[in-house]
Design a protein around this nucleic acid. Sequence first.
DNA 1: TTTGCGATGTAAGTTGAGGTTACATATTGG
DNA 2: CCAATATGTAACCTCAACTTACATCGCAAA
Lengths: 293, 293
Amino acid sequence: MDWSALPPMTALRALAAYADTGSMTAAGARLNVSHAAISQQIKGLEDRMGLSLIDRARGKGGLTPEGHALAETTLDAFANIAMLSAELTGRDAERPIQVSTTPTFASSWLMPRLAGFRQKHPELSLMVDPTPELREIKPGGLDMAVRYGSGNWPGLEADLIVESTIAIVASPDLVGTGDFESPGDLTQFHWLQELGTSEASEFLSRYGAVLNTAKGLTSLPGNLLLEAARAGQGIGVAARAFIQPDVDSGRLRILFEDTRNDGYYLVYRPGVMRPSARALYRWIKSETEAEFG
Amino acid sequence: MDWSALPPMTALRALAAYADTGSMTAAGARLNVSHAAISQQIKGLEDRMGLSLIDRARGKGGLTPEGHALAETTLDAFANIAMLSAELTGRDAERPIQVSTTPTFASSWLMPRLAGFRQKHPELSLMVDPTPELREIKPGGLDMAVRYGSGNWPGLEADLIVESTIAIVASPDLVGTGDFESPGDLTQFHWLQELGTSEASEFLSRYGAVLNTAKGLTSLPGNLLLEAARAGQGIGVAARAFIQPDVDSGRLRILFEDTRNDGYYLVYRPGVMRPSARALYRWIKSETEAEFG
DNA sequence: TTTGCGATGTAAGTTGAGGTTACATATTGG
DNA sequence: CCAATATGTAACCTCAACTTACATCGCAAA
């Protein structure tokens, strides 16, 4: 790392503020300095780098592509630092814990038990975001996420909390009690597909190549899929761990089971976790250990 | 963005240099300041944040977890800025263009045509890195990458350059000329698996669940897979686009073809691209357009 | 066209953050 | 126990980054 290549931070800050506000005067106000300071800083930066950063021809607020790129990168870099430092100093203690989970995990596991966490930590507030895709986990944003997979998320820590294969299930009312040779034999039935979540979608999208002669396919959110399968409306693909009650009671049969033993992981950034998030982390770990471990 | 929450940059720089070198004296030397300056900056930062960043109990170079986290984030943030600014000022004009591609694309498409690029731009130097995993594309590192997928890489631009499905292929000498109902019917043959690259590995890892009763499976790099398949050593999984010659000449038969129409994408960061990289970008686009588009 | 106003550029002077030097105070290995 | 080496602290210094003041520009209303 060549520190001497770094432009002065004050100048970058001025540029970022200018990009953000669209005017020197406003940028000055934002940073609690005069407009002249902004003007001088930006000019100094342009001199130093030997290229123009703001586009003086157009109406106000114009940046050249280079200026825009530099402002973006700067803003991003500074924001990361600001968020982390807010976390470390505890200035964000009251900010809600933010967790993203797959819809299935949220409805099948988390929601039923949330009251227990609330009771244990009444002072903490929590935001649960059940979305298919994993968004970025970073200081100031998501604290952690629950994802289905093999535990390999580059740059992130991942603790296995619930081991579970993927199972192909159906109501006995639909498929009877006989055996099937391969998933291909099930093409005579209607299929239920989960809307793009990590548990089943890849599995299905691959089998889809084989099953595309099927009798049709309904896509619906994960929490409704099991209900539909129980009602005999089709063949469903679901995480094994959350259908045991249905199997025990005979409402669902497991027709095939993936041999790969993936599972639900608690995913988070390496390093220090803020206290409120750590409380949730410990609670999820102990609850799942008590239940599955 | 709350600018007032930002710690002073000089203090962060001092901390990062300390983390990097493991000593105040060395950090001072690195930044061309005295050791006392480092000491004062770090102490000031600790005061301001209200927590200790360096671990004075242990042997030298010790950072607390908080200090470590802050130093990491700072280093990353500064490095991004430094790299971008080097690009913008053209100070890295002579640095080689760095491209990462999948092994298959590198051996089947890029390598045979590289001489053409060298001839057109003799002054540019190029580093091709054929690796399965997509590493981070950022200023100062990778300029662009060629990946197989559906074109959805969050935060990155991706231009489709070669459309291609995934095909299951084999030599007629091995499987004869008859038809097969489903991939499951091929379990009687030996399979050739590509070593964890994006083209075929996910496809295969899913079918693996069905095919795990197979007669065995050989894993080998992508460029050798086709040779082995031609020689009748097993069933192979490969990108459709690069086996046309083999199909035409009768060396390989296509047994199944994925219905999903993914392809090879040229992946890069949004924003300005440095001139040398832009030259390669344009060359790849025009070559692939002439050939496939 | 003139007038007025808001934004930006430039010059000159001021100030405190960030440096220095100097010295005191650990810590370590021979 | 004594160099030798690293870190903490104090007192002072200096210039980068600011301010204020004024010139300039573009534009819209009179």
